[in-house]
């Protein structure tokens, strides 16, 4: 079975990547996950300088989901390159660096610094984190602003740029078209949805940041809808994510139009989830009549019905 796929110029041995923020920089799962077996690893969001992140508590379990309010805590690009990237590079992982900034210039600065760094294969432009006041999602609500930051990053790097979209917007296809026109090489969808929980026992918000981003199977139908819509709105590839836990879930996203997927929340409960999913992919693809990952991409779209 051929599991290979590509996201624009980036070739992947299989379609399963670790989602940013859920896998650290790789060594945290040493002994449990061989990063070379993954389609790739999207590392924690990286800014030009270290960010402190939000006040704890930072996670809260919800029905079929998880709320988080980490707030993009990160070591900054210099420490990332010196201390974190070598682990992944030495093991031959395909590395997607999620990049963040408080201004257009900061996004561009990280992108410029990472340009030409051995072991970095693509950038994921994070304009969709719901947990910070500055940077992140302020760029993800307004198509003109999203296009401007995409242009700024594209002008600062030769690396492929994937733009990670927020579902917290009323016109996802319009947003996708705006960043595609600005030069995005691919889209990733979706980031978390804004949610909130109250700690009833202590009579206060469950998260230190009050609101948080909802992930997990609870948001999977929203993510599938998003992939379905944006993959029809643009010609660039889409990387799908949201509550994926099984190889059948991966196939659902492929059929909706994704060229690859990311797995995040499932890793917390089962660190081996991504490896298990990759191992199950051939059986699941064969069961539904596919001889490759590529054959399944977008196969549920109108005009593609073959059975």
């Amino acid at each position: 079975m051929d599991l290979a796929t590509r996201v624009g110029a980036v070739r992947l041995a299989n379609p399963v990547l670790a989602a940013s923020g859920t896998f650290g920089f790789g060594p945290e799962y040493d002994g449990l996950v061989d990063v070379a077996q993954l389609g790739g690893v999207a590392v924690k969001g990286i800014a030009p300088v270290p960010w402190r992140g939000n006040v704890p508590p930072r996670v809260w379990e919800t029905p079929s989901g998880l709320l988080n309010s980490i707030g993009l805590q990160n070591p900054g690009v210099e420490r990332f390159l010196a201390e974190d990237l070598p682990y992944l590079r030495d093991r031959g992982a395909t590395v997607v660096v999620n990049i963040i900034g408080r201004t257009r210039a900061e996004y561009a600065a990280v992108a410029r610094r990472l340009d030409g760094e051995l072991g970095v294969h693509a950038l994921e432009l994070n304009i969709s984190c719901p947990n910070v006041k500055e940077g992140g999602i302020q760029f993800g609500h307004d198509p003109a602003e999203a296009a401007a930051v995409t242009r700024a990053v594209k002008g600062a790097t030769t690396l492929p740029v994937w733009v990670k979209l927020s579902p917290n917007t009323h016109d996802l296809p319009g947003m996708a078209q705006a960043v595609a026109a600005a030069g995005a090489d691919a889209l990733s969808a979706i980031n978390t949805l804004v949610g909130m929980a109250i700690d009833v026992e202590h009579r206060r918000p469950a998260l230190g940041g009050v609101t948080g981003g909802l992930s997990g199977p609870a948001i999977r139908p929203i993510a599938v809808r998003a992939v379905w819509e944006v993959s029809q709105a643009v010609d660039i590839p889409v990387v799908g994510m949201g509550g994926i836990e099984t190889a059948t879930d991966v196939l659902e996203f492929l059929l909706a139009g994704a060229s690859a997927v990311m797995v995040g929340t499932a890793t917390f409960s089962q660190p081996g989830a991504m490896i298990r999913i990759i191992q199950e992919m051939p059986t699941v693809l064969a069961r539904y009549g596919f001889d490759s990952v590529r054959a399944a991409i977008g196969a549920a779209h109108p005009g593609r019905l073959t059975t």
Binding site: F23, P56, P57, V59, I70
Partner: peptide, 16 residues
């Protein structure tokens, strides 16, 4: 004690 996510240092949830 702190509310915890991954348990292995990856997710940065359980900080003090």
């Amino acid at each position: 004690e702190q509310r915890m996510g991954c348990g292995v240092g990856a997710c940065l949830a359980c900080v003090v």
